[in-house]
């Protein structure tokens, strides 16, 4: 393969990397809009039915949500350290940091699972819920909670798989530009940021 063909359609490697990064950022912008619909719905609900919204939010386990926030933030830090390690030419350190981020991601899902199980026992799940709530606004809050955190959990799962892929790929670990690891970390930060908005929107709304 001729040298100039390697990065086709780009003229050189730097330009190709720029384009990869831009593509990832644009994709993340569209992800933000995906969650934006749910946030818009939740905020409209809160404006229209403030007291009901707060009462329903009181059903959530605040300390589990808080623990998960800490877990996910730490995980995001690990992903950032993996990028730094790859850039510094330390592939083993990068792999270890990715592994840590990945395990923390799994811990997040485990906590979320415990939380869902508890909510199922309390009869807060959609379809079983109406008896426990005063009025439709509270039910809608709970439904939005399940849709929002459920969609977020799907993204966490995808993020874990992506990080596993990056950790297993020798080429990704040894890339001094950290292209793959960098883009995966960006995705993981987005998952983190979405949670940082879900947490106050859903959990902190119930704090009196």
């Amino acid at each position: 393969m001729a040298e100039e063909e390697r990065f086709a359609p780009f003229a050189d490697a730097a330009r190709a990397r720029d384009a990869d990064r831009l593509g990832m950022l644009i994709f993340l912008a569209s992800e933000i809009m995906l969650f934006g619909g749910i946030f818009a719905a939740a905020l409209a609900l809160r404006l229209e039915h403030g007291p009901d919204y707060a009462a329903a939010a009181g059903h959530l386990k605040l300390w589990l949500g808080t623990a998960n926030t800490a877990i996910l933030l730490t995980s995001s830090l690990m992903a950032a350290l993996a990028v730094e390690a790859a850039r510094a030419g330390a592939p083993r350190r990068a792999a270890r940091a990715l592994l840590a981020a990945l395990l923390l991601g799994c811990a997040f899902l485990a906590v979320k699972g415990v939380e869902y199980a508890g909510e199922y026992r309390e009869g807060l799940m959609p379809g079983t819920a109406t008896a426990h709530f005063d009025g439709p606004a509270q039910t809608l809050f709970m439904n939005l909670y399940f849709v929002g955190t459920g969609l977020h959990a799907v993204h966490v799962t995808i993020g874990i798989l992506l990080m596993a892929m990056a950790a297993l790929s020798q080429r990704a670990r040894q890339d001094r530009n950290a292209m793959l690891i960098g883009n995966v970390a960006l995705y993981w930060h987005l998952v983190d940021v979405v949670w940082l908005f879900l947490y106050p929107t859903l959990y902190l709304a119930g704090v009196r």
Binding site: A41, A129, F133, L140
Partner: peptide
């Protein structure tokens, strides 16, 4: 993506009864 989430919510309501749009489900 906003259309995607909207349609996803309709499908979730039809299939598993997560009522975001149906008043009877809240």
């Amino acid at each position: 993506p906003v259309l995607a989430i909207t349609l996803l919510l309709v499908a979730a309501e039809r299939l598993i009864g997560i009522g975001v749009f149906d008043p009877r489900l809240g």
